[in-house]
Nucleic acid binder design. Structure first.
Lengths: 156, 156
DNA sequence: AAAGAATATGTGTATATACTCCTTCTGAAG
DNA sequence: CTTCAGAAGGAGTATATACACATATTCTTT
């Protein structure tokens, strides 16, 4: 149909179809909603879902740097830099100049480990409730599709 | 395993598994990457993907208001309010006081329609390239899963 | 060793996002 | 008509996000 012959009826219809079909819109929308659920779960440890993910990534990548962490997280360098600063301010990670003085080495602190310890069961709780409500199979498929799409996009 | 007995090997393993299994992390990550692709596509019409979605939603909901648009977009009221202000500044939508003077009525402008007309084929281009590269079937499944998850989350 | 290329990161700016608190307005109860 | 509860929205604040530009450091070439 397109927009060539555009009255109100067409617009309404077009808008609805576009919203239903747009991969990006639906990803962002679901992501927004789901992020709120995770944020709630982490409230008691004063973390947001994004911060939990980053903290966990730092924990699992000993002696990494801002630049090196970008790729696995699929995150822009400057974004990561700023997000890391938030965790540093909370004392959960340490950021220090590397031997190569251009680099900033990142490591998790004891306090960070401690928070992670508290946060992990909260995370697991949300994951399990999702699996219960949406079904394990569906979650598994969703994760696979998301990861395929991520790989595809990173190659560009 | 948990975090009870936590050395570097465990952490590395745990971090990897958590990242692979976390629905929210994978949604946000893919969403970030994909948004960049859409943003590129809309560059020539000076829109971002988020703005295209909102503009399209405004176009399809004649005589709507900030509050009424929230639900279908799965967006927080204040977020929508601020995003709408950006489109207003660009002259693509108009925001005016309603009869009920608490409300802000939103409508697309002629300029907005015009930009939408240019943007639609760009959107379609990205959608088609995605379908080609990931497969129609997979896109369809992904959209269905996302929409199921959205519905589930909205009920909370 | 000096010059220039390449690398790693920070900063400025703009948008996106959500929570909390505040103001304005409407409508209902009396 | 007054009061007051509820609705609609804005503003303050903090984080998340990315792009463009600037800076510092290392490496490479001559």
């Amino acid at each position: 149909m397109g927009l060539s012959n555009l009255d109100q009826e067409n617009l309404k219809e077009l808008s609805k179809r576009t919203g239903n079909a747009c991969v990006s819109f639906n990803l962002r929308k679901t992501s927004r909603l789901l992020s709120q659920l995770y944020d709630q779960a982490f409230k008691s440890v004063c973390l947001k879902g994004t911060q939990f993910s980053l903290l966990m990534a730092v924990a699992g990548n000993k002696d990494s740097t801002i630049g090196k962490l970008c790729k696995p997280l699929g995150m822009e360098r400057s974004t990561l830099s700023r997000n890391a600063a938030v965790l540093q301010k909370k004392g959960l990670i340490a950021i220090e100049e590397g031997e190569d003085r251009r680099q900033q080495r990142i490591r998790i602190t004891d306090s960070g480990i401690s928070v992670l310890r508290e946060a992990l069961p909260l995370w697991q709780g949300v994951q399990e409730s999702l699996a219960r409500e949406l079904g394990e199979e569906r979650i598994k498929n969703l994760l696979e599709d998301l990861q395929s799409l991520s790989r595809l996009l990173k190659m560009k």
